[in-house]
């Protein structure tokens, strides 16, 4: 099975405060991993560090993506190579149309993959088709990026962009937060549609509910910047029922 991501002893801090304290984590093609854990355990930081958020400083460890040193790449190089982060809080960008934004993003990704660029007609067709993956109204793709989108629309828009860019490694940072039941089903179904034997998904979530739709192969619990337990999908069910206390007590 092809290895996509290998993280060894990853340490990272922000403003001198250490958040990640030695994470080991491996993702192979075709797998779905769920990362759970109490608030403040470092889940979003982990996602940001893998994406290359310049606010975080990596102080130790190594990360290999498709055999190359991911930490040596900047944010856009990682994105073009197929690392995708679905943001917990997607940013509104007034005046920048979704179409212009995605056109550039898709062009950069295709450049990296050595694929020919799309004509305007092909691109618009792709926008329409991929919009259907998450039932995103085509009117929204004609508007400015996330401007005036509802919480649910913003999250659908993240998965729409994922569909457009066809990443190899997708990290979904609390994509289920702020979604009503229908939107959750649509977003999760969309993510499942995008699964292939060649890509992998890391789902960060607080709730088992999302994992009913996106069934994980592995569940990891992050606590104080370390993975303290890994298991299969039954671990998520146990956490849902019993909380984190029993695990944290063992850890202490």
């Amino acid at each position: 099975m092809k290895n996509i991501l290998t993280v060894k002893g990853l340490h990272a801090s922000i403003d001198g405060k250490e958040i990640l304290r030695g994470i080991d984590f491996t993702v192979n093609a075709g797998e779905v991993h769920a990362i759970m854990g109490p608030n403040g355990s470092g889940k979003s930081t982990f996602a940001s560090v893998i994406a290359g958020d310049p606010r975080f400083e990596v102080t130790g460890g190594e990360v290999t993506y498709n055999g190359v040193d991911l930490l040596a790449m900047n944010v856009e190089e990682r994105a073009r190579a197929g690392v995708f982060l679905s943001f917990q809080y997607p940013v509104e960008i007034p005046g920048v149309s979704m179409a212009n934004f995605m056109k550039l993003a898709v062009a950069r990704r295709r450049e990296y993959l050595g694929l020919p660029q799309l004509s305007s007609g092909e691109f618009l067709k792709m926008m329409r088709e991929k919009g259907k993956v998450v039932e995103l109204d085509s009117k929204l793709t004609g508007r400015a990026v996330n401007e005036g989108f509802s919480g649910g629309e913003k999250k659908k828009n993240e998965i729409f962009q994922m569909a457009m860019l066809q990443p190899e490694l997708s990290i979904l940072d609390e994509t289920d937060s702020g979604l009503d039941i229908d939107a959750l089903r649509i977003v999760a179904t969309g993510v499942n549609k995008l699964r292939t034997p060649d890509n992998a998904t890391v789902v960060i979530t607080h709730y088992q509910r999302l994992l009913d739709y996106i069934v994980p192969d592995f569940v990891h619990v992050l606590y104080k910047g370390q993975i303290i337990l890994s298991g299969d999908k039954s671990l998520a069910l146990k956490l849902e029922k019993e909380g984190y206390d029993w695990l944290i007590n063992q850890y202490k």
Binding site: A51, G52, D53, P54, N74, V75, E76, A79, R80, F84, L85, F87, P90, V91, E92, I93, P94, G95, V96, S97, N100, F101, M102, L104, A105, R108, R109, Y112, A144, Q161, L165
Partner: peptide
């Protein structure tokens, strides 16, 4: 917004240019 656009593969200059053009 610049970080968000870079995470989708745009260079920093492209992201800033797009934002300025949007303005």
């Amino acid at each position: 917004a610049v970080y968000y656009m870079r995470q989708r593969g745009l260079s920093e200059a492209e992201a800033r240019g797009l934002q300025l053009a949007g303005f």
